[in-house]
């Protein structure tokens, strides 16, 4: 029933490598705006405004976070050796990410259980710290993956900052889409400095790559494919700002999302044909045997589209700004 002697299609390993990056991009963008919401949250101290932000965050964060699990489980299924080396090689950053996600996830839920101000202050702090630490740790891992620079290497640190910046931009756009009144106006205004900061981290990343040339990534940056991806990565958030200035907030969020996709595409073009350059493993070296990959294609493949359908339902149900009655978590 499942062909065991060859891949269903000759390019199946590359297709799954691309799918893996797609899951990563979905995560970086979707949970990115959750993280960014946590950063916007830190700038507000009005209780009603915080409740609005939490009501925007509540219904979607859990679903968004599953894209990280999708990335992890697709990685172990399709490229087990990369999964093992990448995660064990960035041990502390992975646990930093997991602990940050844990803190961020429970803080919103715990907060609403008691209205003692001291309790809420603790929960708020957890929420904000988790929202900043998670994208930073994710960037450390991604930097180590692409540039082989470990957890504390400069390229990894700058990648960490870039993901914090990206999340901040996405968070301001999402906050502007989901809120009303002063909060919405301030989120729109915050988009400009956030985008400037994000572009600054991208510039720092390019400078680091050119100066240090980790694993030859600095040189390859100017090949046509990475260059195009890099140009889109920089251009799309700027286009987004122009859209935001015309009050087209949904289009702004989309263009930030496509910008996040371009950043991951840049990662992919810098990696390929390697799956994990630091270990010398190419996509073809590391990919699972035909029977496993064919099975993954036939069983998980269709569900990938079903899952995208779930997200259409989710974001249709929770489209538009948060209603007055929805302030609060679990309301």
């Amino acid at each position: 029933m499942i062909p065991v002697d060859g891949y269903l299609a000759p390019a199946l390993p590359e297709v799954w490598f691309g799918t893996l990056l797609f899951a990563f991009a979905m995560y970086v963008f979707l949970d990115g705006f959750d993280f960014g919401l946590g950063m916007v949250y830190a700038t507000r101290d009005d209780e009603a405004e915080r409740e609005q932000l939490l009501a925007a965050f509540g219904p979607v964060w859990d679903a968004n976070e599953v894209w990280l699990v999708a990335f992890g489980t697709l990685l172990v299924a399709a490229f087990p050796a990369v999964y093992a080396a990448l995660l064990s090689g960035h041990y502390l950053a992975v646990f930093g990410l997991l602990f940050a996600l844990l803190a961020r996830g429970v803080a919103g839920e715990f907060r609403e259980l008691n209205d003692d101000p001291e309790w809420r202050r603790i929960c708020d702090r957890l929420f904000v710290v988790g929202s900043v630490a998670a994208p930073f740790c994710l960037g450390l891992i991604a930097g180590g993956w692409v540039f082989g620079s470990g957890i504390v290497g400069l390229p990894s640190l700058v990648t960490g900052l870039a993901l914090v910046g990206l999340s901040f931009v996405a968070g301001t756009a999402y906050a502007a889409l989901k809120t009303r009144g002063d909060l919405r106006a301030d989120a729109l205004a915050l988009g400009r400095p956030a985008t400037a900061a994000y572009l600054g981290t991208l510039l720092a990343l390019v400078a680091t790559l050119v100066a240090l040339d980790p694993l030859g990534a600095g040189g390859r940056l100017f090949d046509p494919a990475p260059l195009a991806a890099a140009a889109a990565t920089v251009a799309l958030p700027v286009v987004g700002l122009a859209l935001a200035a015309r009050n087209r907030v949904r289009a702004w969020l989309w263009s930030v999302g496509l910008g996040a996709g371009s950043l991951v595409l840049l990662v992919g073009t810098l990696l390929y044909p390697h799956a994990y350059p630091a270990t010398g493993l190419t996509v073809r070296d590391a990919v699972a045997a035909p029977v496993t990959l064919n099975l993954l294609t036939l069983v998980a493949g269709p569900f990938l589209f079903v899952v995208l359908g779930y997200f259409v339902v989710l974001y249709t149900v929770f489209s538009g700004p948060v209603e007055e009655s929805e302030t609060g978590y679990g309301g």
Binding site: V66, V69, A70, T73, L74, V76, A77, A78, P80, Y83, A288, T292, L295, L296, V299, A300, F303
Partner: peptide, 8 residues
């Protein structure tokens, strides 16, 4: 890996 991905 397969069952873990199917679970997701």
């Amino acid at each position: 890996g397969g069952p873990l991905a199917f679970e997701t």
